[in-house]
């Protein structure tokens, strides 16, 4: 589904991703953990081209989406193609980023409407189904500011799903939430995982990783240090850096 090959990313002199190699297969739920500043968000942002990689290759759905070296394109990929590939990725942000001037329903329908140009009635039906999935049908006409953080994040998940992506990227989806609201968001994510959605989730929610994660990746200083089965990584990590990190977050 997704492949990163020798991916590097720098911001000026600061090298944030160093030789990242990662393949995610259909149906996998990959959890990414690591200390602050280790490049987890940057990796997700490079995947859907919110940031351009400096060097390396990115494949989405088996097709080359980006190939660069020293900050230059190696291969001209038509922008429409890149955009099409990127819409196969849905993204959920730590701070929700709902559109405050639109109602819950409009938040979900706007992208399908103007990007996919689908029929209004069809879009609305999909949106209402998604609201049901995240348990918020009764909030469809509210503005985001009237919702709790957990509800907002569930709407954000529905909004991303409305574009019918093949892969969902989550960047610490629960870390801006009050503890009592974390569970409802994780429940929705578990449901998605069980329905077979391919997911990459930056999270420190160990319970989630153990229950639905198929793999855990530990990143530090821009590198993937260790990866493997969640239970193995959490209970008996090999690398010292992983051990000391897990000690800190537990």
């Amino acid at each position: 589904m997704i492949k990163l090959e020798n991916v590097y990313k720098s911001f000026g002199d600061l090298e944030v991703l160093k030789d990242i190699n990662l393949e995610v297969k259909s149906g996998e739920v990959v959890c990414v953990i690591g200390p602050s500043g280790s490049g987890k968000s940057t990796m997700l942002r490079c995947l859907n081209q919110l940031e351009r990689i400096t060097s390396g290759k990115i494949y989405i759905d088996g097709e080359l989406a980006d190939e660069r070296e020293m900050g230059k394109d190696l291969k001209e990929i038509p922008p429409e193609k890149v955009q099409e590939l990127c819409t196969e990725l849905g993204m959920v942000f730590q701070r929700f980023n709902l559109f405050p001037h639109l109602t819950v329903l409009e938040n979900i329908t706007i992208a399908p409407k103007i990007v996919r140009k689908k029929q209004e009635s069809e879009i609305k039906k999909i949106a209402l189904d998604l609201l049901k999935l995240v348990g918020l049908e009764d909030k469809k006409d509210e503005y985001p500011s009237r919702l709790s953080g957990g509800q907002q994040q569930r709407v954000a998940i529905a909004r991303a799903l409305a574009m019918q992506p093949k892969i969902m990227l989550f960047d610490e989806p629960t870390s801006a939430l009050d503890p009592e609201l974390v569970g409802e968001v994780l429940e929705v994510m578990k449901k998605l995982a069980k329905d077979g959605m391919t997911m990459i989730v930056v999270t420190h929610e160990m319970g989630f990783a153990k229950e639905v994660g198929t793999r855990v990746i530990f990143m530090d200083e821009g590198r993937i240090i260790e990866e493997g089965d969640p239970k193995v990584i959490f209970d008996s990590p090999k690398e010292d850096r992983t051990k000391s990190f897990l000690k800190k977050i537990l």
Binding site: N48, Q83, M91, F93, R95, F99, I110, I114, V115
Partner: peptide, 21 residues
């Protein structure tokens, strides 16, 4: 800035995001 990023992540172009969001 998160508004532009969310729009782009949903596949909107720069100008779509500018004028709609």
């Amino acid at each position: 800035k998160g508004q532009m990023e969310a729009s782009k992540a949903l596949g909107m172009s720069y100008y779509q995001a500018m004028f709609k969001i």
